[in-house]
Design a binder for these strands. Sequence first.
DNA 1: GTTGCAAATGCGAATAGTTTGCATTTGACA
DNA 2: TGTCAAATGCAAACTATTCGCATTTGCAAC
Lengths: 140, 140
Amino acid sequence: MEGKDCREIFKKNSIKTTKQRELVFGVLTDSDVPLTVEEIYVILMEQEKNMSLSTIYRILDVFVSKNLVQKSNITDNKAVYEVIGIGHKHHIICISCGKIIALDHCPIKEYEIALENETKFEIISHKLVFFGYCPDCKKK
Amino acid sequence: MEGKDCREIFKKNSIKTTKQRELVFGVLTDSDVPLTVEEIYVILMEQEKNMSLSTIYRILDVFVSKNLVQKSNITDNKAVYEVIGIGHKHHIICISCGKIIALDHCPIKEYEIALENETKFEIISHKLVFFGYCPDCKKK
DNA sequence: GTTGCAAATGCGAATAGTTTGCATTTGACA
DNA sequence: TGTCAAATGCAAACTATTCGCATTTGCAAC
């Protein structure tokens, strides 16, 4: 991801541009899977772009609050982060190897309306996660 | 929940009956909302049935492993637990007051099959959570 | 009933992910 | 280029959960 692209997106969302924010945003846009804070940290380390863990947490909080990034608590412990393209994402996680795949399609938009009528809640968002065995682990 | 009922369920699932397990199971069956470990602990304290937090965690792990109880990591931090009736549960959580409602109906059984074909995963289970404003908080 | 033993409990300490306080640095704008 | 609020780095704090180990308890065999 080019620095310039970042700057425009940041400006549009009134996020101050910093070296660290560009790097974190770059890592996320370059990844085709959601990443944990730890993974982002390691990727940056490997690129010799060391950065404090707490800085990564704070940067991600900003991105999430500006709706540039989606935070998902899929497993019990670590949260994963990914850039939001057009809409929100759902996930499949392999319960054998831990691989996480993001899904773009959302099958429950219609159901939400029925549920609003039924429960009288005003529904704002939802999370959907599937658990199973990925093609590789299925074979074993 | 009567002690006797517990004993039978426990026996059927080869769970050794203990005073603590009966109490925890009783609290869960008496509750119409999913509970955190902390909440279970407090409810028991109020009944002057003090019990170690780690014991509650261990008991719940057993129940979950025997499929008597469902553990859900809905919010970022604390897990909630509830007895499983006929099938798995989904939830709506109020983002204003934190109230959690369990839903029995599952709208995505059919979608799972389509998803298996599409992704070549073998899907075992899923979690679905809705976020929004409950009837009470909606008014404000 | 009594006894024996594996399994369960209680307690405190350890763990792990995340957050926070504060001193230092940095980026945007005048 | 200088200024200052905002961002960063570091270490310490926090919180939910797990673990080790000494003690207790429930079940089964006698």
